[in-house]
Nucleic acid binder design. Structure first.
Lengths: 129, 129
DNA sequence: ATCAGTGCAAACCATTTGCAAATTA
DNA sequence: TAATTTGCAAATGGTTTGCACTGAT
C-alpha cells in the first residue's frame, strides 16, 4: 500500500513538533494555546490536523477525566486496557491479579509509583460467539 | 461516617433499576430514551441522578469511543485499568506481557474472545517522586 | 493551474444550570 | 412545612462543518 501523499504545511509541522516534544497527552485547546504563543494556527486546523495524525496512526487519543479528548505522539500504534463485547455491548467484570506483576514492572522499569490502574477489554463475549 | 440522607424518588428508582438490569454501559441519552418508553423523566434529571449515583459509588463511568460518557451499575467501586503521572502529566509507555495471563483468564473464566485491550495507569512518575 | 489545507464563523451536540413548580420526609 | 428534586428552557463548552481564500505540488 502506497503512502497517501499529503501536503507538508507549517501547521502540521508545528503541531507534530509540539506533540513529539513531550511524551504526554495534550488537549486540542492546549495545543492551540501553546502554538499561538509564537504562531497563528486556528483551533479548527488543530482539530483537523489531530484527526489527520490519528488516521495515520501517528498519535493516540484518550479522553481525560473531564471527558475532553487528549492526544499524544505515538510511533507505532502502541499498547493501550472492563471486558466490553464489541457485538452486544455486554460487560464482563474481570478480576485481574496479574496486575500485581505489572505494578512491579512499573516500579522497576519506570520508577513509577502506581496509585491506581484502569483496564478495559474489548472482544466478543461468550453469548455472542 | 453517616449515610447522607436523600429522597427516594421515582426517577431514581427507575434509573437505578434500569442500570441494575443489564451489566453494561449506558449513555444518559440512552437511559432517557428507554425510560420514556413507559415513563416521563427529563434528560436533566437523568444526568443529575447519574451524577448522584456516581458520587455514591453506585455506578462507574467511562467515555466511549465517540467521547460520550456512559454509565454502568457497579456495587463496590470495582476494578477498571499508559502510566500517567498525576503530578506532572508525564506518560510512560508500559510494555505489558503479563496481559497474556489476563487474556487466558478471560477466555477460561468468561468465555470472552479478547480482541483488544487498553490499559491506563496513574500514579507518580520517577521524575516527580 | 490544480487540489489539499487553512481561517473564520456558524452549526452541533452532549452536558450543565437557573428557577419555579412538584415531591418527599 | 421545610428541604430536596424535577422539568423546562436557556446557557455552556468542546468539536465539527461550510465556504471562500491561501499555499503546496
Amino acid at each position: 500500500m502506497g503512502t497517501r501523499s499529503v501536503y507538508v504545511t507549517k501547521p502540521r509541522e508545528l503541531i507534530a513538533g509540539l506533540l513529539h516534544a513531550e511524551p504526554r497527552f495534550f488537549s486540542a485547546a492546549e495545543i492551540h494555546r501553546r502554538l499561538n504563543e509564537a504562531h497563528k494556527v486556528s483551533l479548527s486546523t488543530v482539530y483537523r490536523t489531530l484527526e489527520h495524525l490519528l488516521e495515520r496512526g501517528e498519535v493516540a487519543a484518550r479522553s481525560d477525566d473531564a471527558g475532553e479528548t487528549t492526544y499524544k505522539a505515538c510511533e507505532p500504534a502502541h499498547h493501550h486496557h472492563h471486558a466490553i463485547c464489541t457485538s452486544c455491548g455486554r460487560v464482563e467484570d474481570v478480576d485481574c491479579s496479574a496486575i500485581e506483576q505489572l505494578a512491579e514492572s512499573l516500579r522497576t522499569v519506570h520508577g513509577f509509583a502506581l496509585a491506581d490502574h484502569k483496564m478495559e477489554f474489548s472482544g466478543i463475549c461468550s453469548a455472542c460467539r
